[in-house]
């Protein structure tokens, strides 16, 4: 089950102090507020947190696919392959990066495919857009290859089928095929398994792991499910209210979570065979990101809070070589 971090993981992606604001009628929402993270070649980073904590906005910022009217990156850099994506003109971003070197699989396989075009057309489109295949015959052959790559049976004939003729798991494979068509270096998976049956979730996880072993793909997995994260990720970054509160390799996070929020997330996973009166949950709600508190953002919901927590945002503390936490009173539990 456990994965080891590949030796000397090359930082494929480095996000530095990313700040993304959404300009809404209610005010400026600081959706991403100083996020830094790195993903190595062949590494899977889990980005974990409640909905609304900025996971998806972080990834949309990397791809520069923020809502046109309201979203803007106001600060920070996104380095991929040594290029700062935040500085690229949109034209270049679309032609040479999006889909080509970094791609994203959106949340719901049932709605991520266009219902009125064939699967072959949709898988072929990015290949054509990035000039990797041309001509009806060429695009078709290339699309078949990609569909085979994600293990879709009898790909040649299924190419002419429409999305509604596929099962949920197969649709997720088709969506993955679209994202992987141009062999990107970095793949962002936004809750790729949350709408699937458990057996199909396992199959998808296996598939992504195989693909990663084959090609050295870097993956960011957005999820609120620490179980899925444990199964597939090398490292986990926990996000809360627009900031990363704890990063560590998956074993450390699960055994020695230092941030009370991480601990609370872990405690809220129901365990088979453990009798409880009711499922553990975290009381209270995340703070508004329009006018966030100056202190630790988790403080109002934290059992360990002190006056200091409410006053000042905690600095990042290095607990171990691959384990950092932003907390005034990190928990030190032994496994």
């Amino acid at each position: 089950m456990q994965q080891t971090v590949p030796a000397q993981a090359q930082p494929l992606l480095r996000v530095e102090n990313l700040q993304t604001h959404l300009y809404l009628r209610r005010g400026v929402l600081k959706a991403v507020d100083g996020v830094s993270l790195a993903v190595g070649t062949g590494e899977t980073l889990g980005l974990v947190g409640e909905s609304g904590c900025g996971k998806t906005m972080t990834c949309l910022s990397i791809l520069r696919l923020l809502p046109k009217q309201s979203g803007r990156i106001v600060e920070g850099q996104v380095w991929l392959d040594g290029i700062d994506l935040t500085r690229l003109p949109e034209q270049e971003m679309a032609r040479q990066w999006r889909g080509r070197r970094v791609a994203m699989v959106t949340q719901d396989p049932m709605t991520s495919l266009n219902p009125v075009f064939t699967v072959g057309d949709q898988v072929g489109a990015p290949l054509r857009a990035h000039g990797l295949a041309s001509g009806a015959r060429g695009v078709r052959d290339a699309a078949v290859k990609v569909l085979r790559h994600v293990r879709i049976p009898s790909a040649e004939t299924r190419l002419d089928d429409y999305p509604h003729q596929f099962s949920g798991g197969m649709r997720q494979r088709v969506v993955s095929a679209m994202a992987l068509a141009c062999q990107p270096r970095l793949l962002i998976l936004d809750e790729p398994t949350s709408n699937l049956d458990v057996t199909i979730q396992v199959q998808m996880i296996e598939l992504f792991r195989e693909l990663q072993n084959d090609s050295g793909l870097g993956i960011i997995l957005i999820t609120h499910d620490l179980g899925v994260a444990a199964a597939i990720c090398h490292r986990v970054a926990v996000m809360y209210a627009g900031r990363i509160v704890e990063v560590g390799d998956v074993r450390t996070i699960y055994r020695r979570a230092a941030h009370p929020y991480t601990r609370a997330l872990l405690d809220s996973i129901p365990h088979l065979g453990v009798r409880r009166e009711r499922l553990a949950s975290i009381g209270g709600q995340p703070p508004s990101l329009i006018d966030p508190p100056s202190g630790c953002r988790f403080a109002p919901r934290c059992a360990h809070r002190t006056a200091q927590c409410e006053r000042e945002y905690p600095p990042e503390i290095q607990l171990a070589p691959h384990h950092t936490v932003a907390c005034w009173h990190p928990l030190h539990e032994q496994a």
Partner: peptide, 20 residues
């Protein structure tokens, strides 16, 4: 979602609008 997905894999905007 499918238009967002189309953007995320790099399809040009005119294609997404006028075709998809």
């Amino acid at each position: 979602d499918y238009i967002r997905m189309g953007r995320a894999v790099g399809n040009p905007e005119w294609l997404l609008v006028w075709k998809y």
